[in-house]
Design a protein around this nucleic acid. Structure first.
Lengths: 197, 197
DNA sequence: AGTCCAACTTTACACCGTGTAAACTTGACA
DNA sequence: TGTCAAGTTTACACGGTGTAAAGTTGGACT
């Protein structure tokens, strides 16, 4: 793996990241990324054969930078289901602003690029897995709302904790990160447990 | 307006609609639409100067076909805020499956095409307006959850009633339309009024 | 010193999809 | 008969992705 870590690779990832993060991220082209990285366009293709592959690599890079795993430790360590749900929502909501640019690029590409679609589906599936774990902890404690199946609860939580929802509320409606978190948390607790957080 | 109603125009709109509705809607090109309509690619450009314009026209066409206004009459006629919210959610949720294909095309284009972005923003804004009206009716009746501003309530409802949420639950999770409706309704009532529907 | 190699640059080009341009056809209507 | 609108056909410019291949350069190894 370390053989893959040339400086250039990282410069390219950082450039992609920066450009995607900018709000006019609409059309970030390979040439733009190359320019931002101070490298020829061909050098980009040398390391990342397609735009999709570069996007995937950028996403992985951000995971490392943002220490995703560390963020999720707290939620996994929670002693009760309710705590776990609370911590998971915190962790994920806090992650959204950091990956938003890349996420948007994925969402835009997923209808045309098979590779990007698969990669994005993977990431979404990972999030759903976390949702399922939180729901399962709730169920174990008997805190799951009566009449609600674990699958339904998982899906509902997954929907609430989606990038488009975060985008709509913070970007379109101008909500603060804090308000987003508390509102989604309240919705999730009401929907899954019938209680307030 | 009637001068614009050549048969060909409609054939093109129907073709666009059909192709966008198909699940492999990923890359519906102008040439595909022309072929489906049984018309030359140039004929399409003759009537709709850009892909974005064609998309906008298709959306308007679907509005007419689906009699959007009629659908919304019931919710506007509701005598109480609670009834109105209920009816509005029904109307909108029922609308999603019909416009999904086109909506997806808009969402995919909105990052690159200015015209499409504006048109989509318009439609989203119209939905938000409906949400605001329902919230306003709730408030008038004193049914809005204490401590919740009208704006916040509107945004929350708007988020719940978004195409990506509908897509996630019905397409990814395999929910039935009915389940989607009752779940969203329950979430919305809990969040806005603190009561169950 | 000479050579070799990997990383990178430069230049060029194929492919696709959008959109433009212009000449040609056809059928209806006056 | 002539004209006009609506279409067709053919051709092409443009921009973005991805491929190909020849040239440069700096360091490592002998």
């Amino acid at each position: 793996m370390s053989s893959k870590n040339s400086e250039t690779r990282e410069k390219i990832l950082i450039a992609a990241w920066r450009l995607l993060e900018e709000d006019h991220a609409s059309g970030v082209r390979m040439a733009d990324i190359a320019k931002e990285a101070g490298v020829s366009r061909q050098a980009v293709y040398l390391h990342y054969p397609t735009r999709g592959a570069l996007l995937v690599a950028t996403a992985r890079y951000l995971d490392v930078i943002n220490k995703v795993d560390d963020r999720l430790v707290k939620s996994r360590a929670a002693s009760s289901g309710l705590e776990r749900l609370d911590a998971y929502i915190d962790a994920l909501a806090g992650y959204f602003p950091k990956i938003y640019g890349v996420a948007r690029a994925f969402i835009a590409m997923k209808d045309t690029d098979e590779e990007a679609a698969a990669a994005w589906a993977d990431r979404m599936h990972a999030i759903r897995h976390g949702c399922a774990a939180a729901v399962s902890a709730l169920k174990k404690d008997g805190d799951l709302k009566p009449g609600l199946t674990a699958a339904q609860a998982t899906d509902t939580l997954w929907m609430l904790l989606s990038v488009p929802n975060w985008e709509l509320l913070t970007k379109e409606c101008g909500w603060s990160q804090k308000r987003f978190e508390t509102t989604i948390k309240s919705l999730a607790f009401q929907a899954l447990t019938g209680k307030e957080p």
